[in-house]
Amino acid sequence: MTAGATAPRFAPALAGLEHRLVDSGDGMPTIEVARERLHELLARLRDRAGFGMCTLVTAVDHLPAEPRFQVTHQLLSLEHRDRVRVHCRVPGNDPWVPSCVDLWPGANWSERECWDMFGVRFAGHPDLRRLLMPEEYDHHPLRKDFPQGGIEPDRLYREWDRKRRAGWSEPR
């Protein structure tokens, strides 16, 4: 939908909060907001516009553009049967957004995966550990500057293997 055409259903809920409606090209209403107001906006969407479900938290790496990352939340309202998308651009040298686990507990693992894959921190997340890669892994694989073959993909295994062999005593 274009921003000027008809005001979206949730427009009254966001009155007085600085945000922008953007055309995402796929018909889903899309809001762009600064990260200082992201949590307030999400809370209003949940409490005043009935978006009771957070279906997706992910990020897009716009390298080499700056601000580099675009954190995307997709919300679903079961009672009104509609969805909304929230974009929030964050700079590459300090990527963090406020966590929304306090609003939707189901966003917990989505945010952990986003941290794992993109290196975007979620301030206030109760347990921000990696979801898929090993905890000691140094890189964030879905960033655009991460090579496809990985950076020393076997490093953690070889370290473990060296330690294991050092403690190896029983011959056979």
Binding site: M133, P141, F146, P147, Q148, G149, G150, I151, P153, D154
Partner: peptide
């Protein structure tokens, strides 16, 4: 490694 020429796959 097959078709998974990837950082995650042995």
């Amino acid at each position: 490694g097959g078709m998974y020429d990837s950082y995650a796959v042995v």
